[in-house]
Simulated assay, not measured.
Amino acid sequence: MTQSDSERLTTGFFSQIRESPFRIAPERAIELVDEMGGETWPLDFASGSANFEALPNSKTIEGTYAALLSLWAVAASVWAIFSTARMAREAGYEQLDLMTLPAGRMAMELKRAALEIIRNPDAPWDEALPDPDPGASRSSFDGLINNLFLAAVSFVVLHEIGHLVMGHQAYSGRSHDQEREADEWAIAWILKSPPSDKHRDFRAAAICVAFVWIGLIDEVRRSKVTHPPANQRLGEAFNYFEKLGDDSLAFEISSYALKAYFDPVSENPADENPLDGFISSLMAYSRSE
């Protein structure tokens, strides 16, 4: 059987992804094993639509290759947007059209690729786009993208672990409540006791990147039968960001990403700091369909 591009390009990440829920908050790794009853639960990968799912009967979490590649594309896109927007702001530009800059155009092409994979898990990877590099040096540009990707994956996986820890069942009549509870469990787990403000900022940024990816899934699938809309879920996650400073890197990264992804037409508001920018972008996203 021929491998899809999604499988081919993500296989090298599998071992790192299986470790990711323990590495996003390493100070709590032993606690996480205890929550699992003393042994780690399997995390498997398969073909299919971009998704992660907790299987209560087998205590297994299953992700798809399409989920991994589309989430990597979002992480790469968000990092390119952030880098471009920050350089423009430091140069004194108040407005930025990403499509006028090569890095900005690449960021939007990566977003487009993520959407295509969400629509069709067997969609080919555009040869004009960079391939993921699982072995990239952590300090390189590709390595920084991988760090953000793996941290975002860790939130998604911890969300599924939360379902299992709380005994949630599939096809429940309270599915929206279960999704919110799993979000709260994963966010609180990640942000409870980071060793520094820098760690807290990075972890919060990764959570926001995961919700940007979920927002793309909402765009494609539209159905909100089983899950609340991503904009509502991100708004509720904001309640856990009270310890982030007004100039938090997480707010800066996320405000640029939300604006570029979900409100690209309107002018950039004259926000005083990254927190104000995040709130403005989140409010615009919440008003969007």
Rank of each mutant, 00 (worst) to 15 (best):
157 V>S: 04
157 V>R: 01
160 E>S: 01
161 I>L: 15
162 G>Y: 05
162 G>V: 06
163 H>W: 07
164 L>F: 06
165 V>G: 03
166 M>Y: 13
167 G>H: 02
168 H>V: 05
169 Q>N: 13
172 S>Y: 09
172 S>D: 14
173 G>R: 11
173 G>N: 09
173 G>C: 00
175 S>Q: 13
175 S>Y: 07
176 H>C: 03
180 R>S: 07
181 E>K: 12
181 E>I: 08
181 E>Y: 11
183 D>E: 03
183 D>K: 00
183 D>Q: 03
184 E>T: 11
184 E>G: 07
184 E>C: 03
187 I>H: 00
189 W>R: 15
191 L>F: 01
192 K>A: 15
192 K>F: 10
193 S>K: 15
194 P>G: 01
197 D>E: 13
198 K>S: 12
200 R>W: 10
201 D>T: 12
202 F>S: 13
203 R>P: 10
203 R>W: 12
203 R>E: 12
205 A>Q: 11
207 I>Y: 04
208 C>R: 02
211 F>G: 02
212 V>Q: 07
212 V>M: 11
212 V>G: 03
214 I>A: 13
214 I>Q: 14
215 G>H: 05
216 L>I: 09
216 L>R: 10
218 D>G: 02
220 V>G: 00
221 R>Y: 11
221 R>F: 08
222 R>G: 13
222 R>L: 13
222 R>M: 10
222 R>C: 09
223 S>C: 04
223 S>W: 05
224 K>W: 10
224 K>L: 12
